[in-house]
């Protein structure tokens, strides 16, 4: 599959896809300003899977929006050394007027990729998310889990375009609580799928969630953010943990998260 090969080649240009330097973000001005992020230092290595956890209001989504370029930081700087970061939102947010394949082709179309190339690419990505042959379905004909997989394939299509300025740079996938609106069993299956796709494509992933268990299961590294303002509190290396060690790690992160939350009780 060419998607795999291209991504692997990108990995050889060993620069960190994203680096935060003392990033701050405030909404509003003056005394009524709400500080969402404060002095955040964070970096994601090539091909690394990083999970961000934190209670609501910790600026997880803000942080992701900054990386995605949907918002600008008010302090510090973000260094991005990847092709355009791909984003998967909590909702699949597929374009209802396009088929599944049409949705995946959309970023390529906007980048001016010729039709035949788009077709092939969309078919490949559909296979990757195990939706081969369903490219002609409309979003309303798909289940929630299938829609989210199409959204993932679409996001990958937006990042694996190596014709533009991002050519040869490592790719980066941003995910904002992508599975939290799904039922438990679908979520479980999709977590497995995401790991498989991560291994297949070698992309770096910055994954936001409020579910500690999910973070420990998926991530190599878990980063805990405090709330209002969001700061990096602690990080855990959870790479390859299984069984009792995984459970212990979940308990530890959970305890730290609770501590952060109870510090807000006044």
């Amino acid at each position: 599959m060419t998607a795999t090969i291209e991504a692997r080649q990108a990995v050889t240009a060993a620069t960190q896809p994203v680096r935060f330097h003392q990033v701050g973000k405030a909404f509003g001005q003056g005394r009524r300003a709400v500080v969402a992020l404060d002095q955040v230092d964070l970096e994601v290595a090539v091909g690394e899977f990083v999970c961000l956890v934190g209670a609501s209001g910790c600026g997880k989504t803000t942080l992701l929006n900054l990386v995605a370029g949907l918002d600008q930081p008010t302090a510090g700087g973000i260094e991005i050394n990847s092709s355009r970061p791909a984003v998967v939102f909590q909702e699949a947010a597929l374009m209802p007027w396009l088929t599944a394949a049409g949705n995946i082709e959309l970023p390529l179309r906007m980048a001016g990729v010729p039709k035949s190339v788009r077709r092939t690419k969309a078919a490949e990505l559909l296979e990757l998310v195990r939706l081969g042959g369903l490219g002609d379905k409309r979003p309303h004909e798909l289940s929630g889990g299938m829609r989210q997989r199409v959204a993932l394939a679409r996001a990958l299509a937006s990042t694996t375009d190596h014709t533009g300025s991002g050519a040869g740079k490592p790719s980066l996938l941003l995910m904002d609580e992508p599975f939290s609106a799904l039922d438990a069993i679908t979520r479980d299956v999709l977590q497995g799928e995401l790991l498989r796709i991560w291994q297949a494509t070698g992309t770096a992933i910055l994954f936001v969630t409020h579910d500690v268990r999910e973070a420990v299961r998926l991530g190599q590294r878990v980063v805990l953010l405090s709330s209002r303002p969001g700061r990096v509190v602690r990080q855990w290396d959870v790479n390859g943990l299984t069984g009792p060690a995984e459970i212990a790690a979940v308990d530890e992160v959970n305890a730290a998260l609770r501590q952060v939350i109870s510090s807000h009780a006044a």
Binding site: A93, P107, M110
Partner: peptide, 25 residues
């Protein structure tokens, strides 16, 4: 509002956003 945001994240510029996202939506 999520659709134009998604469009922007997928690399739509000002005109691309209007042509491929806003108008069909």
């Amino acid at each position: 509002p999520i659709l134009p945001r998604v469009g922007k994240a997928l690399g739509a510029g000002r005109w691309g956003g209007i042509r491929y996202i806003l108008l069909p939506a």
